[in-house]
Amino acid sequence: MITCSVSEQLRITEIFYSLQGETSRVGLPTVFVRLTGCPLRCSYCDTAYAFSGGQNMTVAEILTAVARHHTRYVTVTGGEPLAQKNSLLLLSALCDAGYEVSLETSGALDVSSVDVRVMKVLDIKTPASGEVKKNLWSNLTALHAHDEIKFVLCNESDYIWAKQVLRERDLVDKCTVLFSPAQDQLSPTVLADWILRDSLPVRLQVQLHKLLWGNQQGK
């Protein structure tokens, strides 16, 4: 049993149970722990409701909430989870409790201290996101084979830019790379055609949860 002091709290927007809609774990029943707050303002953000509000919870309280759902998979997301220093403690505590844990992070904050057992899903911001200057490229050296890199693409210019980054930084030699179309901005079919035309060694990611439930929060 983990005993947490008052200082070991996090600001939580929501904890919910759903199907994983992204990454190589797509379709798996997963508990999502959404932390409050984010230093970025991406043009396509679909979780602006997590920028503020929420409630303080200790790591022990979060573990209790997660345990109510009988699944082995937990995703810590945001907002930007790493904006809260105690997120590192939470990630390790979840791993210690036996869960297979993934972290969804913007790629703007240092990931080198994240527990190696965690699958890091690192978002590389494209020009159309409006936050391309926030990419912390040194994060690429902290990735392992089980981690994943995600590009959210808004248009063909983003695609061309991502192809260049893919090649120049040898990303496919590091881990799985995901290309995801921004909702209502780039057709998944068009992106699929580009990937096939160029024989890119990337995985097309279509957000399963939005196909099933639209933009409903807590899904």
Rank of each mutant, 00 (worst) to 15 (best):
T189C: 07
G130M: 04
E148F: 04
F151P: 04
L122W: 02
E168G: 02
W137M: 07
G54K: 06
T77A: 02
L136M: 08
G107D: 13
R41V: 09
G53P: 07
Q9C: 14
T77Y: 00
A48C: 14
N215I: 06
I160Y: 01
D198Q: 06
C45K: 12
D173L: 15
N139P: 15
A97M: 06
S18T: 13
H209G: 02
A65H: 15
E8T: 11
S24C: 12
L90T: 14
L178M: 15
V172G: 05
S138M: 07
H146Q: 15
L153V: 02
C4A: 12
S87L: 05
T36W: 00
N139H: 14
T75G: 04
W161S: 03
V101S: 06
L186Y: 04
L122I: 11
E156W: 11
G218H: 13
L171F: 06
L211T: 06
L89S: 11
T64W: 08
S187Q: 11
F16E: 13
Y99V: 00
F179T: 10
W194M: 13
T58V: 00
Y17L: 08
S102E: 15
Y159N: 08
G107A: 09
L204H: 01
L191I: 01
E104T: 10
T30A: 06
S106K: 03
M1I: 09
A83Y: 09
L90P: 12
